[in-house]
């Protein structure tokens, strides 16, 4: 564990709490992509299968994994049941097949061994890197977002961005690198580039998140 990894994980945790806060306080899931949230559940469940297969990494690791699976399912419940009426499916029209299909193919092609759990792990890495697409698509379509929603997306982007120095650090200190996670992580962080630009230049200076026309 190094400081980049720790703060990356904390940013990831923060993103979930910000999302819950947004839904609970505004009593609405307006502006959020249900599809992105479903993809995160798929990501967590397929990646954290090792929880149920007896692989033990650490107490920290297990607690975090359980939290991410539990909280992401709870968010689906909030969006689908409790605040269903505030969700606008006509905005959330990104075709997730275009994300799941290629991720599955990449998972089958690039993995550390051709076993069920390793393929699913690899699939989850590729899928996570693009899971934010439906959410960014909504931002693009509406051209603006509530500030708290932008904080949520920023926390998610910061989480993956911090994993990059973590990998560099681990490469130097442990001599090990995880090429699948690194490539997908770089892609994922890159996807946030446009968003970050508007977020840092506008939202953090108290302005609304509005995309330039």
């Amino acid at each position: 564990m190094n400081i980049f990894r720790l703060f990356g994980d904390l940013a990831h945790l923060a993103s979930i709490f910000i999302l819950l806060q947004k839904i609970q306080v505004s009593r609405s899931c307006r502006g959020l992509s249900f599809k992105t949230q479903v993809l995160y559940v798929v990501v967590f469940v397929s990646r954290y299968l090792d929880l149920f297969l007896g692989t033990w990494v650490s107490f920290y690791n297990t607690v975090m994994k359980l939290f991410f699976i539990g909280s992401s399912c709870y968010i689906l419940y909030l969006m689908r049941v409790q605040f269903r009426s505030t969700y606008d499916p006509t905005l959330d029209t990104f075709r997730v097949e275009y994300l799941v299909g290629p991720s599955l193919v990449l998972g089958l092609l690039f993995n550390y061994s051709f076993t069920f759990t390793e393929i699913l792990w690899s699939f989850s890495i590729f899928l996570e890197s693009v899971a934010i697409f439906p959410q960014l698509f909504i931002l693009q379509r509406t051209g603006e977002a509530e500030t708290i929603t932008t904080h949520y997306i920023a926390a998610l982007g910061i989480y993956r961005a911090l994993y990059i120095p973590n990998w560099i650090y681990r490469y130097w200190t442990e001599g090990s690198a995880d090429p699948i996670a690194i490539v997908a992580g770089l892609v994922q962080t890159g996807l946030y580039a446009d968003f970050f630009y508007v977020y840092f230049t506008k939202v953090l200076q108290g302005k609304r998140f509005e995309l330039p026309a």
Binding site: H12, S58, K65, Y112, S113, W121
Partner: peptide
């Protein structure tokens, strides 16, 4: 593969 089962990141 020694990588297998060593995914300690989240």
């Amino acid at each position: 593969d020694e990588k297998e089962g060593k995914h300690d990141e989240l």
